[in-house]
Amino acid sequence: MLKKLIKIATISMISGTIMFAANFNAQAEKDRHAFVNYFLKKFENPVANRAKYFPYVPIEELKKDYIYPLKFEDFKNGPMSWYRPAKEQFAEINDFPPYEIPLDDGKELFTKPFANGKTYSSCFPNPAIKQNYPYYDTKRDEIVTIGMAVNECRVKNGEKPLKYGKGDIAKVIAYLADKSRGQKINIKIPSANAAKAYEAGKKLFYKQRGYLSISCNECHVQSAGKRIRAEALSPALGSTTEMPVYRLKWGGLGTLQRRLVGCIKDTGSEKPKMQSKPVKELAYFLTYMSNGMKLNGPDTRK
């Protein structure tokens, strides 16, 4: 009798957990569909929808410089997807992509043996894996980013971890990204705690902060498609596909973590640490929003 009771209780708990996760996935999918539809509608016809989405952009500029209608996949190109002057500049820059040299360095680092004779291949036999990162590791009960995976591989092989954000780590990730080019982003929410992490990332994205009292959302959703002075604001949709990115502002490659930390600092907030829980949660949420989009990194941005 007791055994039966325990069995029933266990089954109920497991099914309850599964149902909760499934329900949360449904909510996250609802969020994602609404997010994608917002961008598709916004860039369907900026001239016709000027009053709703682009009230301060001169009509002549909308007619002359805006590219539309945009499809889902177009958003992976950031401001180059909708802003003609940026697209032309981008095409010229990418005649000789500035990320090519660091990408070659990344290949060399990836194939160069560690002191123990093994290489990164011992951890990543198939390097086309970037579409699955960041993922929620249910055993460790935390989000694992691709940078963490690279460093854990190094430590496992007796090497020192690399500094996050730029330099060699960005080069190795660039190699993995290049091998994953064309793969569709596939982020999952496998547990109740993963759902909590997604929700925390979502809050960080939408909640205003810092002495400027702005949020990621205000610049990269509501104001995406507008300009700050001469700079075109990139849409949040597809913003993780090009990572790691060669930014002309940085004069080198940088990771998604570096970009997110920089964005948070730009709101006037205290700069969080790379790979800290909130930054990983933000990356998790933001990458989930671009689920199904093809990876095109490394790429170049201003």
């Binding site: 909640k207 949020s215 959703v221």
Partner: peptide, 12 residues
């Protein structure tokens, strides 16, 4: 303050 209202910014 924003804890109360941030959800209003999420596209529906």
């Amino acid at each position: 303050q924003y804890e109360k209202i941030w959800r209003a910014a999420v596209p529906k």
